[in-house]
């Protein structure tokens, strides 16, 4: 066997091994194709579930606002009534009743302020819905990338599933947070006070 024959055999062996390796990689990709396609199909389902969280917390927050508006209006009427009673008992010099009326007015005012505090706390709904929208947007981006990979395996785009739906426009602050304000109000005010 000549040197050229030996070299040729060696090259053929290398090519054969290389082909085997490529076939193995292709087989591995083929086994990955179905799980990737499945994951791609699950993205819109997850996005829809997260959208439902936003819809349901918004509906709940609005039901709470309905009740709080009713409560605050009613408490206002109670305070007006108690003030009238207080005026009358003061005129009659009934000290004990005046003290009681004062105490009741104070308690109703505390209830009213508590109701307003609950109302203020419902701002969480807007902030958490922005956080959820951010998460959905990331999921949708991931879905797009998965689709590109699945399309590459299939040679054409995967069939649209029943769960597919057009991407809706989402407006959110990716850094929205209930507690972590990057700039405090005093610094914001300074910026505005020192503007040119």
């Amino acid at each position: 066997m000549t040197m050229t024959d030996l070299l040729q055999n060696q090259i053929q062996k290398e090519i054969s091994e290389l082909t085997d390796s490529i076939n193995l990689i292709v087989d591995n990709f083929k086994t990955l194709r179905n799980p990737l396609a499945e994951s791609h199909e699950k993205v819109p389902i997850a996005a829809r579930q997260l959208d439902k969280v936003t819809e349901q917390t918004e509906a709940a927050a609005n039901r709470m606002l309905d009740m709080l508006e009713t409560i605050t209006e009613r408490q206002g009427e109670v305070i007006t009534g108690l003030e009238t009673i207080k005026g009358e008992v003061e005129k009659q010099g009934a000290e004990e009743l005046t003290t009681l009326a004062n105490s009741l007015v104070e308690k109703v005012n505390t209830n009213l302020n508590d109701a307003y505090s609950i109302m203020d706390a419902l701002q969480f709904q807007d902030i958490t819905s922005q956080q959820v929208n951010h998460a959905v947007s990331l999921l949708e981006d991931l879905g797009g990338k998965l689709q590109t990979i699945v399309t590459a395996f299939h040679g054409n785009p995967p069939e649209e599933t029943a769960e597919e739906m057009p991407r809706k426009e989402r407006a959110f602050d990716p850094r929205a947070d209930m507690n972590d304000k990057k700039t405090n109000q005093a610094d914001i005010d300074n910026l505005f006070n020192n503007r040119a």
């Binding site: 203020d120 969480f124 902030i127 850094r175 700039t183 109000q185 914001i188 005010d189 505005f192």
Partner: peptide, 27 residues
């Protein structure tokens, strides 16, 4: 707004906003 990064606040100021509050706000 929820946007509390200084550069955003400066952008709002440049756009012509008179003042700025970050959510959640107090009454």
């Amino acid at each position: 707004t929820t946007r509390s990064v200084k550069d955003d606040i400066i952008d709002a100021m440049k756009a012509g906003v008179n003042s700025y509050i970050v959510k959640p706000f107090t009454p």
